[in-house]
Design a protein around this nucleic acid. Structure first.
Lengths: 133, 133
DNA sequence: CTAGAACCTGACATTGATGTCAGAGGCAAG
DNA sequence: CTTGCCTCTGACATCAATGTCAGGTTCTAG
């Protein structure tokens, strides 16, 4: 398939695909006229790359990890494996951090809610006493 | 305290503190000569702001949430509360996404490890057969 | 054959938080 | 008073992925 189709199937922009190639994350076979062609297999690859980007990995880091995906075991995977473990830990740490923040936010919401309820209750009581008993 | 001390106690740069003020996330009392002064209370606030930044909130969004922290219940907290709920959900979604990615990474590592073991085993067997039985 | 859509390269723009620098003024210790 | 450190404002730089535009080539449908 050509670049436009890959882009729409993987859900990224054409621009990004060219950028991925420039960064060595993606390769393409060129037609005689120079147009990029891809196999179905690349769709999955691009989606994975996107996932790593979304997880905050840099293109440089992704480039170090991908060989490990391509050839399940090269000599280089020695370093790559360590790199993956490192990124895995970094991700875990980041996740824990986000969870803490989310919980802090939830706590804040609960506090605001409670205050709101209190206020509403006070309001009801004001009303009741205004109506008189 | 002055800005330098706040920066070091909150673990951020002086530059960032001025930026936070510019974005309306932080206020300071100015001395006659124009220097910013803060109370101990601000340390905690800055740390919280940092946490929100790290969670991917923009300064604009943070600015919308902070009033809810300052005065536990203003009229505005109506919109702010909804905003917080929205960000809370966004965070949950993001966390789930990161977990998926981390697990994908873990799967990849396991695969590489397995392959490595297989290779090592093959190597041992080659050795054994070379030594002769 | 031709019009329109898709592709090519290359370059510049954008975003947002932060770094960095310059020039000027403030403050505390010797 | 001087020296050194801190602070001020304002401006420009940075990074990284992506957007966008321009000018040219290629493909495809009619």
């Amino acid at each position: 398939m050509r670049i436009g189709e890959l882009a729409s199937r993987a859900g990224v922009s054409v621009r990004s695909l060219r950028y991925y190639e420039e960064q060595g994350l993606l390769t393409s076979t060129r037609s005689a006229s120079g147009q990029r062609h891809y196999t179905d297999h690349e769709v999955e690859r691009v989606v994975f790359i996107q996932r790593l980007f979304a997880a905050g990995l840099s293109s440089r880091t992704i480039a170090e990890l991908l060989p490990c995906v391509d050839s399940p075991s090269e000599e280089n995977s020695d370093a790559a494996l360590e790199r993956m473990a490192q990124e895995h830990d970094r991700l875990s740490e980041r996740i824990a951090d986000l969870v803490r923040t989310r919980d802090a936010l939830a706590g804040l919401m609960a506090m605001a809610q409670a205050h709101r309820v209190t206020m509403a209750q006070a309001h009801r009581e004001r009303l009741r006493s205004a109506v008189g008993d």
